[in-house]
Design a protein around this nucleic acid. Structure first.
Length: 884
DNA sequence: AACCTTACTTAGCACTTCTTAA
DNA sequence: TTAAGAAGTGCTAAGTAAGGTT
């Protein structure tokens, strides 16, 4: 990877390998005293406190735990967990079917192409994180074409926006940034430019006027409805107008005074409370119990409906989901004295309800425009009343003002509580947070609010307790609000601060890899993984959560080593997304992990048994203010992105090519962070279709070439390529293809005949006879015979009036189409399981993107959607030279 | 435990592409 | 050949679960 070698950290290779060359083996520390057990003597404590201890005949190995008592806190039972790898055979509780859907789904996502170890001598000499480097870099390079799924095609049609830069706003942002960080940080450039999104519709017109402005636009929207034609146009204008809004008021990044103490979040806060899901309206569709329809009280019917709606989905097939649901459901049914008593899940048949919902969906789809419009208006009205609040007098958007409606809890992965009934939340359970003098919004009719508080150190407007996991839920401001923006800014500034410190920090942990104290060694090793692989911290988890891990909670079974220094990681991370990668690691890291895994290693034992995230973070805080484990993820993501963007973007190139580079850089970051998405269900089919499409093009090419040669046989010498067969086309396929073509042709003929007949019927004319249809079909037969002949002779007559020139023109067109289709295909394949959104939204400093847009003259709209532009307003005031 | 960020899935719709009719 | 409509895809925004940090 020559391109990563020029990175500044290249010099660290020496340090990394030469550092303390004598002390690099495992047993030097046998003598180490200290509260920490010396490494060599250390024994893997084998008694695992089982928090759940039912079925455990297994591994009751009695051995004394060493010195401290580190194990008590271990929450994960040591019950041998079958790793998800071999999901085909059983599972702790013998519930195969529970295991399999999830497991198979996940395994789809695993990135098989990544599994070979890369031999890449230049490992340590670059800043590029291992996880990205090990596989994705070469991968991305290997295929010349990728991404820009829509970029390419949409580029042509997308509305053209002008970007306007008003050059000289002053630079308080820079000041703020500079003042907040260590002096080494490069201030955010002096002459600030603003990337502003201007549209044809919105000129300077809609400045300010706050509140009234909005109600106006809402009113006019209603008017728009009955204006016949220009409807859509006006609608668009309105939309864009909104975008500009009260910019100055909320532009905190243009204002002075970054207050160091940010524990106080607001001085005044007023809002209209929250919106509750409407009460349940019974539909009266009866479920069957033991084959007979039964009547349910509305409350019971509602819950039955929750399940009915999910019938035939993965959830509804999941035994744990079923059990949890049924426990809550039968209890509720009993409470309402349902007859007969519902005691057996297997006797429940929810299909009538399911069918009903299917029909309702269909109905909804077929609603008239007016009905759909009415629904939209209703939503808008809600936004009007609950969608905004006033924070320090400024109007700000509220995020999730809707209290979560009741339903069945859909835990991800193997969540033990999945399927439990999530109860309806009532105003009495909700606490509101607002200014003391704010008008308390009316609670819904017949209800009162649980509590009203005035805590200016909190950003939430409302909170309630959810019944399934007993966790607290909040209503926060929207992502585009000043509060969120400020903390986003802060997050990225911390990451940039790390950029300046990371050299030292790396040096330190590399040194610590050989420390005599076990704890320090573990800490250093974990830090290495967090830094180089962008792993999450990995907090401890409770029993009633899905079994997922991060760095500190990795267990033995998640890591396998292969000499000389290759490490395989395979575990379920956040959201039960599988992390499965192989990479070369630092030699000492390799040794350490081997050491940690020393016998008697057991599945279920933690790799870093001395380490907790809190301790790791405490240490990090001592290295740099504000530094925590997650900052490394942000830092590495943004750094990698900037780095790759610089390398990949072509100076001269079309907008599409630049976008391609952007998306590739984005994708690398996504791979680094292991951001995945489910492969869409139709993916394979779609790919097959594309392959066939390309073949069909090639078939046409072949025919055209033969036509040319038939018309002008002399050309065979001049242009021998005309005689060459198309790749990827064999005789069998051609034959099949032609059969299909003819079949389609016949269908068409038939349809035409039928339609024509209908017309004649309407006009009271004599209908076409079957005979006529037959003659028409005969033409097709003729054509088919012709094709067969052509196949044998290799001579093709071609269409009427075919000339060599026309054919050649068509050939060129076909080549273009093939190329375009192929690009799209490669792109699609690469993208099928990588989710770019998460990194774009949370990890990549938006200022990198803003600067890039300026530098390469790409409109911001091409890379940020409306909501993202809104969220990143604060970042748009950088000039082209800004760097992370 | 509180509180805020990050993560994935999904509903709904916009955009493309394919068909059909003129 | 073009315009309009239908069907198929892909994207955005919403929703809420699941992380990290204090």
């Amino acid at each position: 990877m020559s391109d990563s070698e020029d990175l500044p950290l290249a010099l660290r290779k020496g340090q990394l390998n030469d550092h303390n060359p004598s002390a690099d083996d495992d047993n030097i520390d046998d003598s180490g005293s200290d509260s920490d057990t010396p490494l060599g003597k250390r024994k893997r404590p084998a008694i695992r406190k089982k928090v759940i201890d039912d079925e455990d005949e297994d591994d009751e190995d009695i051995q004394s735990s060493d010195s401290g008592a580190p194990l008590i806190k271990r929450t994960r039972p040591a019950v041998k967990r079958k790793s998800y790898k071999d999901d085909s055979d059983d599972d702790d509780d013998g519930d195969e079917s529970y295991d399999s859907p999830a497991a198979s789904k996940k395994s789809n996502r695993s990135n098989s192409s990544l599994s070979e170890a890369r031999d890449d001598s230049s490992d340590s000499d670059s800043d590029t994180p291992l996880a990205a480097k090990a596989k994705s870099l070469p991968k991305a390079k290997a295929n010349g074409t990728s991404n820009g799924t829509n970029g390419t095609s949409r580029a042509k049609v997308a509305p053209k926006y002008k970007e306007e830069s008003d050059s000289d706003s002053d630079a308080p942002l820079a000041k703020k940034a500079a003042s907040k960080k260590s002096p080494t940080t490069k201030p955010a450039a002096k002459p600030l430019k603003t990337v502003k999104v201007k549209t044809e519709a919105s000129s300077s017109a809609s400045r300010k006027t706050m509140g009234s402005d909005d109600s106006k636009s809402a009113a006019s929207k209603k008017r728009v409805k009955d204006e016949p034609d220009s409807k859509t146009k006006v609608k668009k204008m309105k939309k864009e107008e909104e975008e500009e809004e009260d910019e100055d008021e909320n532009a905190w990044w243009l204002k002075e005074g970054g207050n160091e103490d940010d524990s106080v979040k607001w001085t005044t806060l007023t809002h209209n409370g929250v919106y509750f899901a409407p009460e349940y309206i019974p539909h009266g569709i009866k479920m069957l119990y033991d084959g007979k329809p039964i009547s349910l009280a509305p409350e019971v019917e509602e819950v039955a409906s929750f399940f009915g709606a999910l019938l035939f989905t993965e959830h509804a097939e999941n035994p744990v989901f079923q059990q949890n649901f049924f426990k809550d459901f039968s209890k509720l049914a009993k409470k309402h004295k349902t007859v007969p008593d519902i005691t057996n899940f297997k006797k429940c048949d929810f299909t009538p309800m399911h069918e009903y919902f299917q029909k309702e969906k269909e109905k909804k789809k077929n609603m008239s425009k007016e009905q759909k419009q009415a629904i939209k208006e209703e939503k808008l009205a809600l936004d009007e009343s609950y969608g905004f609040c006033y924070l320090d007098g400024r109007k700000e958007k509220v995020g999730n003002y809707r209290i979560e409606p009741p339903g069945l809890f859909r835990g991800r992965g193997k969540h033990p509580k999945t399927g439990c009934l999530k109860l309806r939340v009532h105003p009495e359970q909700v606490t509101l947070n607002m200014s003391k003098d704010a008008t308390v919004p009316k609670a819904p009719h017949g209800h009162k609010w649980g509590k009203i508080v005035h805590d200016d150190t909190k950003t939430w407007l409302a909170t309630w307790k959810e019944n399934v996991n007993d966790s607290t839920k909040y209503v926060f401001l929207a992502a585009g609000s000043s509060l969120k923006g400020q903390s986003d800014f802060k997050k990225f500034e911390t990451a940039r601060a790390l950029k300046n410190e990371v050299g030292n920090i790396r040096q330190a942990y590399l040194r610590d890899l050989k420390d005599k104290k076990m704890f320090i060694r573990q800490r250093a090793t974990a830090l290495y993984l967090i830094d180089r692989l962008a792993l999450r911290a990995g907090n401890e988890k409770g029993e009633d959560e899905a079994d997922t891990v991060g760095c500190c909670s990795l267990r033995f079974e998640h890591v396998t080593l292969e000499k000389p220094n290759i490490m395989h990681l395979d575990f379920l991370g956040k959201d039960s997304i599988r992390y499965q990668k192989t990479m070369e690691v630092d030699e000492q890291v390799f040794k350490n992990i081997r050491l940690f895994k020393r016998e008697p290693a057991q599945e279920g034992d933690e790799l870093f048994d001395r380490l907790k995230t809190s301790e790791l973070n405490k240490h990090l805080q001592s290295l740099m203010k504000g530094l925590t484990a997650k900052v490394f993820r942000t830092y590495n993501a943004s750094f990698t992105f900037q780095d790759q963007l610089d390398k990949l973007t072509p100076r001269k190139g079309t907008a599409a090519e630049k976008l391609l580079a952007y998306n590739r850089a984005n994708r690398l970051v996504a791979v680094l962070c292991n951001h995945q998405r489910a492969v869409s269900k139709g993916h394979a089919v779609q790919m097959d279709k594309i392959v066939d499409k390309i073949r069909a093009f090639k078939y046409q090419k072949m025919k055209l070439k033969k036509t040319i040669l038939t018309l002008e046989p002399k050309l065979k010498k001049k242009q021998p390529e005309l005689a060459e067969p198309e790749s990827d086309l064999d005789d069998e396929w051609i034959e099949q293809h032609e059969v299909q073509l003819m079949a389609k042709e016949r269908e068409k003929v038939k349809l035409k005949w039928e339609k024509e007949n209908e017309k004649k019927k309407e006009n009271k004319e004599k209908p076409l006879t079957e005979k006529e249809l037959k003659t028409m079909l005969k033409e097709v037969d003729e054509r088919e015979k012709e094709l067969v002949k052509e196949r044998k002779s290799g001579k093709v007559t071609g269409a009427r009036g075919a000339t060599v020139e026309k054919c050649e023109a068509q050939l060129l067109k076909l080549d273009e189409r093939i190329a375009a289709t192929r690009t799209a295909m490669v792109d699609k394949e690469e993208n099928k399981q990588t989710a770019l959104g998460t990194s774009k939204i949370n990890y990549i400093d938006p200022r990198i993107s803003a600067a890039w847009c300026q530098k390469y003259d790409v409109p911001l709209e091409k890379i940020f959607t409306k909501t993202l532009r809104d969220k990143f307003k604060w970042a748009m005031t950088v000039d082209a030279s800004w760097e992370f």
